[in-house]
């Protein structure tokens, strides 16, 4: 009986101490952002590895998702004689939900796992210790620029995803299925609101950028410094990011509506 309580106690204590450490590290990392601005080179390099390298997969996926939305939306809407609303359906789905969410999921798989593996390997090969011994703070030199680059890149990637998706829907709906081009765009413009839809989508993707990049960076930084440790941390990054992104998406949508 007491063992049982002791076990619950042990689990909750270790959970909260982990959480506490993670929160402290997060604030230590964000506290470095101000100093980072004087060294834009570090951020540029990281935007390259998390942003530019994810661009291709984001654009290609966005295009396909837009085309699928066009196809599916058309087939449903045409039954109600409302195929002019195709643009609205495509744009709203992308801007509000699919853009930020799918981008975050792809980003977790492409950039997040790479970040975890990179930082985990730096830990396993004593590079992080080496930095510390050279009196260079790895939180400032390694974690902070990566987190900031992720926060900057995610909304840009999500915007590209949505924009390309809208054109993908246009290609299918207008060019192939014969929806009127004018009503595709005008209905879209009439029904998609800048604040309610576009800006909220951007807010979502900024939040996802913080969360996914942080998970990736933290998992790498706190992993067991062995090859198994790094590989299981990489898996955890992708799985946890996906779960938290989808959960948070529901929460944010509920808050913003």
């Amino acid at each position: 009986m007491f063992n049982w309580f002791a076990q619950i106690g042990h689990i909750s204590i270790s959970f909260f101490s982990r959480l506490g450490k993670e929160v402290i590290l997060f604030f230590q990392t964000t506290a470095c952002f101000a100093d980072l601005l004087s060294r834009p080179g570090l951020i540029i390099q990281q935007i390259f590895s998390v942003g530019v390298r994810s661009m291709l997969i984001i654009i290609v996926s966005g295009f396909f998702v837009g085309m699928v939305l066009g196809l599916q939306g058309y087939n449903t809407l045409v039954d109600f004689g409302a195929e002019e609303s195709l643009g609205v359906v495509v744009a709203l789905s992308l801007v509000r939900e699919l853009g930020p969410v799918v981008t975050a999921l792809l980003y977790a798989g492409r950039a997040g796992s790479a970040l975890t593996a990179e930082i985990g390997l730096m830990k396993a090969t004593e590079q992080l210790s080496g930095l510390e011994m050279m009196a260079v703070n790895p939180v400032e030199r390694i974690l902070a620029p990566r987190l900031l680059a992720g926060i900057i890149s995610m909304p840009l990637l999500a915007a590209m995803f949505s924009a390309v998706g809208v054109f993908g829907g246009y290609l299918i709906g207008v060019e192939m299925l014969g929806v009127d081009s004018g009503s595709y765009w005008s209905q879209m413009q009439a029904k998609v609101d800048y604040h309610q839809d576009v800006l909220n989508g951007v807010i979502k993707s900024v939040v996802f950028g913080i969360v996914v990049t942080w998970i990736a960076v933290y998992e790498g930084y706190s992993c067991t410094p062995t090859s198994e440790g790094v590989s299981s941390a990489t898996t955890r990054t992708v799985v946890n990011s996906a779960l938290i992104v989808l959960g948070l998406d529901f929460l944010l949508t509920a808050l913003m509506l």
Binding site: L156, M160, V166, Q189, V198
Partner: peptide, 16 residues
């Protein structure tokens, strides 16, 4: 490109 995409979303897709 990201900024351009945001502008497209603002002016072409929504009614800003």
């Amino acid at each position: 490109l990201g900024a351009l995409a945001l502008l497209i979303l603002a002016f072409n897709v929504s009614n800003m």
